[in-house]
Design a protein around this nucleic acid. Structure first.
Lengths: 153, 153
DNA sequence: CAGATCTCAGCTATACTGAAATGC
DNA sequence: CGCATTTCAGTATAGCTGAGATCT
């Protein structure tokens, strides 16, 4: 009886929303373990966005990733301190900052790629290739469907 | 250009761990919206555990749900204040508290059931019944595989 | 004695709100 | 004028750590 108790109730085990929360914990655990720092997950997302779309305003970064405008500021401050991104005022729309990934940022991003990929493998170990693709596809459809809907009720 | 930017980079859209985080946000959003308070999700999980397994120690609740022992204390304080659970020292092992669900707790749990079920439907709207079952099954296998492994590296 | 349990105090990360300054 | 963007200050929650008291 010391440490016997384990399984969660079936009521929760059938709930997609609960399973997503549990799976997310496992996923973040593996990614964070591979990347070292916890905040590296968000850094990776921002760097990936900048490499994919080129110079981007802070507000657009936030919208693409679902990060609050206010938090983007702090995250970019850190990335700027590490010289992984460069911030400059947009000459065409002076309200905005244009954020650009630096050469060092690209190097960091590509180095993270390997670790992140391995973390996915850790997470999806119980599933075969077909099942992994199926899971990704189902999640994409759910996520795509709720784009622009979930926050701000 | 005002609010045109939307989609996340493909690099993230292919990542299971990222998709899980995004889907979890949508799921929690819908559940919280139906239940009213944000903390109700955790309350639901605890009440479901107590109804499923009967009187349970605080440490076991935490292990079953992946909640820290320290947070279980605070959550049970609130549930106790609302008379949804009852806490008493375990006479057989006096280190422990035995937590029991009350009649009011059962009523609250069953009332929440409807809302939670509807929230799943909101979340899974883009998927048909077969796909929903498939998603749940895949997530269960991932979650089951990482039971007892994810925290405490 | 080693180890488990409950509790509290406190820390960090994350998520969000409100408001100000600036510019479209 | 209304609206968008960046920034800061502040709030709230979740998740976790460390330590103490109690008990097996």
């Amino acid at each position: 009886m010391t440490t016997a108790a384990e399984a969660p109730p079936e009521r929760l085990r059938r709930l997609t929303s609960w399973l997503l929360n549990q799976a997310r914990v496992a996923g973040n655990h593996h990614v964070t373990e591979r990347l070292g720092r916890p905040r590296a997950r968000t850094d990776y997302a921002i760097l990936a966005t900048l490499e994919a779309f080129g110079p981007t305003s802070q507000a657009d970064i936030g919208r693409r990733l679902g990060i609050d405008r206010s938090d983007v500021v702090a995250l970019l401050n850190q990335l700027g301190d590490e010289h992984l991104v460069h911030r400059a005022p947009d000459e065409l729309d002076r309200r905005r900052n244009v954020v650009t990934i630096t050469a060092a940022g690209r190097r960091r991003l590509h180095a993270m790629d390997d670790e992140v990929t391995q973390a996915q493998d850790d997470l999806l170990q119980p599933l075969n290739q077909e099942e992994r693709a199926s899971l990704v596809h189902l999640l994409q459809r759910v996520v795509d469907h709720h784009r622009g809907t979930p926050p701000r009720a």
